[in-house]
Design a protein around this nucleic acid. Structure first.
Lengths: 265, 265
DNA sequence: GCAAAAGTGTTTGGTATACACCCATGT
DNA sequence: ACATGGGTGTATACCAAACACTTTTGC
């Protein structure tokens, strides 16, 4: 697809694509004195792909793909996600659209509509990299990223921190049923700092959002902890203030939407 | 520009454009019993353009325009804004990117990168509509909008409400120098509800963000009010939590950037 | 009994809210 | 003097942080 000379191309619309910041809970990264303070703990991990062309050839970058007129942006992000991790996202939300001409650093001007996603707990999947060009990294020990992708990851993390209160989000990380310690662990992993456990317990229980399942769970050889879940009320209603955040769909539905979109018109 | 038949077109990337939600402070809209409660007050106004083609021909819609590879998204939004209002934005920030195929309602699939902007107080400019196809409306009395633009406006308002605490934002609405009553008026206009003035005063003064200019301002024939401004410290530092919000540039600078972008490469 | 994690109590300080009240000014 | 908006005081309630303490389990 040849596009004429440079001065002609300047008036053209730029390339448009979708990128995804994929986050998952995993074991605490080793060698970080940072997490020696915060209890044993978990950390967030993120998959990156190695670039196979200029610019930034060989550097790590966010997974991404193109747009199609018959896909919603969310569907495009979904496809990009699946093609790199083969995991199903448990949450998917638009982050921001980046379009500064300077960010392409010598490549074609590029507009990236960036999504962020949560996927299942990935314990055990870390070792077996499907592809040599895809690798998971702990967010507190990332390599240098291509383009402005480092900033983008930072932004995704701040967004997650801002939404950790929402049951729809935290549930995707800790699961449907959890002890207060597990929930606490997730909060600390996301916040990146320690949180007083006693106050955390009270705050959570006082919120009225949790209900006792009646079960107990013994992690080590210590006193068993009671297992909680979010109440149906809370999970159903979007307590979220703003309308654009209503993207907590069940992703299996969206897969169907992809199919229906392909057969519509 | 003919693009082949429908099934071919489906695999193409969709059209991409920029739209802008432009907000300005103006007099309270008449005939709204809503604002009888909240003091005399002001309201937010927004300019809309009448559509001159299908779909939604004749309906009111958000101003917008195309993208160019040598413009940043912000610059494109800036151009779209100027061409409809001939006003300079005092604040401009990306809102969201809309791209569901269904939203075009029979038109070509369209991705809209939406910005929201604040412009100067528009008292006096309301009557003299430059163009018959551009008209200002109070946000609490909008007509039915084309596409999903109604939702978009709602979202822009919720975003503004979420950011009213930021000096960079509120300053663009109330000006650099203001009495606490004026500031209070703006807060009420944005929140859409009344706020206890006494507590508002204390909260603002206790924040340490304001400093007395030494001047007094008499609005009617009552006791003169002291004039405040935000401290330089506060205005300089972005106290904002997230990195993507750093778009509180001085727009005059950006105009220069437009020029330099046109002359670069 | 002891270690380790689960779970409770209590104190302290800050902040939001409601509302009564005083002050300065022009007519 | 009095109406009007500017400006202050105060009581209540709630919420977050800090941290000492008790309980339950396996060894």
């Amino acid at each position: 697809m040849i596009m004429g000379n440079v001065s002609e191309r300047r008036k053209q619309p730029p390339q448009v694509g979708v990128s995804v910041v994929i986050l998952a809970l995993g074991p605490a990264s080793h060698g970080t004195q940072e997490h020696a303070r915060t209890s044993a703990g978990s950390t967030l991990w993120i998959p990156l792909v190695r670039r196979v062309r200029q610019p930034f050839l060989g550097q790590w970058a966010l997974p991404g793909g193109g747009l199609r007129a018959d896909h919603s942006l969310e569907q495009s992000a979904y496809v990009a996600l699946e093609s790199t991790t083969s995991l199903h996202p448990r949450y998917l939300e638009q982050l921001y659209t980046f379009g500064d001409p300077a960010r392409s650093h010598g490549g074609l001007p590029m507009v990236s509509i960036v999504y962020w996603a949560l996927v299942d707990d990935l314990n055990g999947q870390l070792g077996q990299s499907i592809d040599d060009n895809v690798k998971w990294f702990p967010v507190d020990d990332l390599p240098e990223l291509a383009f402005d992708h480092g900033d983008i990851v930072d932004y995704a993390l701040s967004r997650l921190r801002g939404k950790i209160e929402y049951p729809q989000i935290v549930t995707r990380l800790v699961g449907e049923r959890f002890t207060l310690s597990q929930l606490h662990d997730v909060y600390e992993a996301v916040a990146g700092q320690s949180i007083d456990l006693a106050n955390f317990r009270r705050k959570m229980l006082a919120s009225g959002q949790l209900e006792d399942t009646g079960d107990k769970l013994r992690v080590g050889r210590n006193r068993p902890a009671t297992v909680y879940r979010y109440t149906m009320d809370v999970l159903r209603q979007s307590t979220w203030s703003d309308a654009r955040d209503r993207h907590d769909f069940d992703v299996r539905e969206t897969q169907d939407d992809v199919l229906s979109a392909l057969t519509t018109i």
